[in-house]
């Protein structure tokens, strides 16, 4: 794998832990038109099957793009050894050309440009050379050992009104190249990937969140290879980080909640009731005296007279 930016940077790609020389790396003069990257590789160990994808990061485009052999943006690109020129369109009208006889030559060269980029734009590129050989369906053996990142840190979250998101960065230093793979960083809420591992390089992953982020975040680093199954290594140990100062909380309210069910249904059992019926004109109830309740005290209860106005022959 190799990557670089501008005309000054690039490291040899790696295939199964064997370095491949980059003979030269050229970028065109921006004034001449669309940005062009030309990378010439030495021949050692590089076969078409190992040269499986090219990923561009044109400036002005937020998303990562792969140029598919069908000319469309896709997840990956597979280049087969046809021996003929191949041209792959890039979004915006550019092209990706392999010169005639490319695969048969001792020079590996790739020309890639993005016509959509402005003349002064910078185009990041990543060339994936490991993982899968279409001529040999078996997967490459790569070192999937994940070296723990060092000096991880989170920045203070800042609200970006244009994105309408809270933004904060995770940074760490990579220890080992993790050959032929990418590093994926994820936590419980945000998923990120695509950090190309370079030794001793300081990395940043930008995270965005609709709401002010929680104080504490758990990160896991994965190590994965490009392959038909996109095999992913076991995750690293949880990395628990705490954000810097948090946005002020003006009202922090916990719902009172609460709902009570039931209550008491009181049932009176008269232990020794007797009634004293005294008819009083106009009174619609009578009184029962419970001479001994459970506590041994007398109690009085009013009870309804079934028909208080019934006529009798004795009044």
């Amino acid at each position: 794998m190799t990557n670089g930016q501008g005309s000054r940077y690039g490291i040899p790609p790696q295939v199964a832990n064997d370095a491949i020389d980059i003979l030269s790396l050229y970028w065109t003069n921006r004034d001449l038109g669309p940005e062009i990257a030309t990378i010439f590789f030495g021949a050692s160990g590089l076969t078409p099957g190992q040269f499986v994808s090219i990923q561009l990061f044109p400036s002005g485009k937020a998303r990562q793009e792969f140029i598919g052999p069908d000319g469309n943006i896709s997840d990956t690109i597979n280049i087969v050894n046809s021996g003929d020129d191949k041209t792959y369109d890039i979004a915006g009208g550019g092209s990706f050309t392999l010169p005639e006889g490319f695969w048969a030559s001792q020079i590996r060269s790739v020309l890639a440009y993005d016509a959509g980029a402005s003349p002064n734009a910078t185009c990041w590129f990543v060339i994936q050379t490991g993982g899968f050989d279409p001529h040999n369906p078996g997967e490459f053996t790569v070192d999937a050992t994940l070296d723990p990142p060092t000096d991880p840190a989170l920045t203070e979250p800042v609200y970006d009104p244009e994105l309408d998101q809270w933004v904060f960065d995770l940074s760490w230093t990579n220890q080992e190249p993790e050959l032929g793979t990418l590093i994926e960083v994820q936590n419980s809420q945000i998923y990120q990937e695509g950090s190309v591992p370079i030794p001793d390089e300081l990395y940043h992953e930008r995270f965005t969140n609709e709401d002010p982020p929680d104080l504490e975040w758990i990160f896991r680093f994965y190590h994965y290879v490009y392959s038909p199954t996109r095999r992913i290594s076991p995750p690293s140990d949880d990395l628990i980080l705490t954000l810097g100062p948090t946005p002020p909380i003006d009202i922090n309210h916990v719902m009172s909640g609460g709902l009570s069910i039931g209550g008491s249904a009181t049932i009176f059992l008269l232990t020794d009731p007797s009634g004293i019926y005294k008819l009083v004109p106009g009174k619609t109830h009578d009184t029962i005296i419970n001479r001994a309740n459970e506590a041994g005290d007398a109690e009085e209860f009013d009870v309804k007279i079934p028909e208080p106005f019934a006529e009798t022959g004795y009044l």
Binding site: Y159, D250, I251, H253, V254, M255, L259, S260, G262
Partner: peptide
């Protein structure tokens, strides 16, 4: 930049 945080909570108690 103001922030209101509401933590939903509901309980069945009193018994």
């Amino acid at each position: 930049g103001s922030l209101i945080r509401v933590t939903p909570r509901f309980d069945l108690g009193g018994l």
